[in-house]
Amino acid sequence: MPKGQHSPDRQVATKHNALSQFDELTIGASGAEVRRASEWLEAACRQRNVPPALVEQLALCLNEALANVFTHGGGLALAMPIRLLLEVRLDPDCGKASVTVSDAGTAFNPLSIPQREPPRSLDEASPGGLGLVMIRRCADWLDYRHQDGRNHFTFGACWKPR
């Protein structure tokens, strides 16, 4: 898919007979593209009736995941397109929304990083690592795989439909 193209209408029936709805976006590695990705996510989630509080959690996770790609992914991550996939699925008893960030940077599994203790004072507070802390707190589940030379990092959240 060409860079920036937005594909909102894919629908795939899963093995559980629920209907998953997908949106895709391809972005470059820049701060402006992070902002565009946030706007895309918020609009797509609104269209799929994802609760606003959940959208905010996913938007935070997306911001942090992209910041990690830019910071730690190396030259390839910055040079190659970054693909985003939103999946929203509504089962009778729960709704689920997840975002997969796919980049061509250095293989890195964020789930391999040990959870760290929160700092007890300003003196102890270090500038790094907060993004992963935030992702772990805001997401209900995380997944990582390295396939076809790309990192695929997924974070998701669920809600009870009314």
Binding site: S38, A59, L60, N63, E64, A67, L122, D123, A125, P127, L130, G131, V133, M134
Partner: peptide, 19 residues
């Protein structure tokens, strides 16, 4: 309207300067 970890880092840096 939105506070990412990079913003929190800036707040921590400011708080350290004041402290």
């Amino acid at each position: 309207k939105f506070l990412a970890s990079i913003g929190i880092r800036a707040l921590i840096a400011g708080a350290k300067v004041v402290q």
